[in-house]
């Protein structure tokens, strides 16, 4: 032991005060912002659970006396769109049929583009990339008519394939940008090592670069999944009546009712339509924010 044993009191860790004025201010701000964004959702949910007379009372925020989950079932399977009374379930499955292949294809093509642009430096690569980025900033409404004309010329306008192709085309700039920025940060030496090991274009992509980009694959999938699911305009214009996605069916349901407006059913259908993106946001928020940041900051 030391000869000079001075019993010095160790400095206390400063007590953490939980509620400073600044903190109260922050929480007040956060609460009001959340309320602003959550109230519409709340109104949607409560309205969808009300009976028709309750809706007519026009008490927007009131909790339903007796929640009617049967409204949801009706919206799903028996509400009438024009003359067909099958609910919007058909639209749901159409959306699934469009979203899954379109997401997979556009993410894959974006990764492929990003990989090719970052590693196989071709003479025109940078120019092509510039043109593609330009495409991302031209309002897509401008391109709709030429596309319709081309598709009609090609004979597959208003088919399942035309909606797939449209989603791939319009997803391409963002997907390419995301993956290019991801791959640019990968050292060239890794690519060179794989070249020496005999890897060709596809093998290096499929066995090395694609597995390496798992975080970006997740982000890109989330972006495309929600983006394509929420699309209305392309679905309406290109999909054709048999393939109308859920968003289009929802609009038809809301717009085509005769007589009294059945707001509770409309709201139930809206909730069913938005449940997929809501679930995606809810379960993958962390990745989603990362993807937004990757696209916004680096690009």
């Amino acid at each position: 032991m030391n000869a000079t044993t001075q019993t010095s009191v160790p400095a206390r860790r400063p007590k953490r005060t939980l509620l400073t004025p600044a903190r109260i201010g922050i929480y007040a701000f956060l609460l009001s912002v959340s309320a602003f964004f959550l109230l519409p959702l709340y109104v949607m949910v409560v309205t969808s659970l009300k009976t028709a007379p309750e809706v007519r009372q026009a008490m927007l925020f009131a909790w339903p006396a007796n929640p009617q989950f049967s409204n949801w079932a009706e919206a799903w399977s028996s509400a009438c769109i024009a003359l067909q009374c099958n609910g919007i379930q058909g639209g749901f499955w159409n959306s699934v049929r469009i979203v899954i292949p379109a997401t997979a294809l556009s993410v894959f093509l974006g990764a492929l583009n990003g990989y090719a642009l970052s590693f196989w430096r071709s003479k025109w690569g940078d120019i092509l990339f510039g043109i593609m980025m330009l495409g991302a900033f031209v309002p897509f409404q401008v391109m709709i008519y030429p596309l319709v004309a081309w598709f009609r010329l090609g004979g597959f306008y208003n088919t399942y394939w035309s909606i797939l192709i449209v989603h791939c085309i319009f997803g391409m700039p963002l997907m390419t940008l995301l993956f290019r920025n991801y791959y640019v940060a990968v050292p060239q030496e890794l690519f060179k090592a794989a070249r020496i090991d005999g890897g060709g274009f596809w093998r290096i992509f499929l066995q090395l670069m694609l597995p390496m980009a798992t975080p970006m694959l997740i982000v890109a999938t989330i972006l495309q999944l929600t983006g394509i699911w929420n699309d209305y305009l392309f679905g309406l214009i290109f999909a054709g009546q048999d393939n109308y996605p859920m968003t289009v069916q929802l609009n038809n349901l809301v717009g085509s009712t005769f007589g009294e407006r059945r707001y509770h059913i409309d709201m139930a259908a809206t909730i069913l339509t938005s449940i997929v993106p809501l679930a995606v946001y809810f379960f993958s928020g962390r990745w989603f924010v990362r993807g937004i940041a990757a696209g916004a900051v680096k690009g």
Binding site: P187, E189, L190, A193, R195, D197
Partner: peptide, 20 residues
């Protein structure tokens, strides 16, 4: 000739191991 056809092995400063 392509790098793979030159009968060479190469070691890089950054190791360049395949991370996955």
């Amino acid at each position: 000739a392509d790098p793979k056809d030159r009968d060479i092995g190469m070691v890089f400063q950054s190791y360049a191991l395949y991370p996955t």
